[in-house]
Nucleic acid binder design. Sequence first.
DNA 1: AATATATTTAGCAGTTCTGCTCAATATAAA
DNA 2: TTTATATTGAGCAGAACTGCTAAATATATT
Lengths: 103, 103
Amino acid sequence: MSKARGAEEVAAVDEVFRALAHESRRQILMVIQFRGGEMTAGQIADRFACAWPTTTRHLKVLEESRLLVVEKRGRVRVYRLAKERLLSVTQGWLAWFAPGADL
Amino acid sequence: MSKARGAEEVAAVDEVFRALAHESRRQILMVIQFRGGEMTAGQIADRFACAWPTTTRHLKVLEESRLLVVEKRGRVRVYRLAKERLLSVTQGWLAWFAPGADL
DNA sequence: AATATATTTAGCAGTTCTGCTCAATATAAA
DNA sequence: TTTATATTGAGCAGAACTGCTAAATATATT
């Protein structure tokens, strides 16, 4: 049986793959992963050569694609990696190509 | 032990994720997959609403990222899906986030 | 309240991407 | 060799993306 793929899921795949298209955004996800799954905007921005507002915008793209979830804590913003979404959306799409693909 | 990640692999990841960023290109890969792994440029272009040269360019992006391999046969060009590269490059990157990630 | 800290928003310039139309090329068939 | 078929290339316009600087906002500290 093939899994139903509604417009919502198609949109999710699009948002996620679009977000993953930029090297800096992929690096942001990795940095957060290596640092235990969450980091503040400042900790993230400090690790990149580009200007802080540039990182802010990458963070926004990641947040809009729901690969990151943000939480305000006092004056910092903590970004948490939505690892489950990252894996389920990408692997979900890639499954169409997997050896035992569900055709 | 973490896998060594040379500039080449980083470039491969970038090319592949960039190629996967566009919905039409993802659809092209799926269409070829469902049709058994290879199709001519014309068969592919016929399945899309956009103008043929537009599809041609998407095919070029996919070929440059080596997700498709092209072969000239008489006056047609057969595009073959490089499923192994698709899976190895994407899963290779995603593995950093997998449950038992090799940190 | 004044100041410092953390982060985002606004807005601009340059680049890249997408899709189109109108050729151009290459091979096959008549 | 003329004509039809299959496909790509050139070049343009508009949209989207990226990165920057300067300014705004929001919270904490003094």
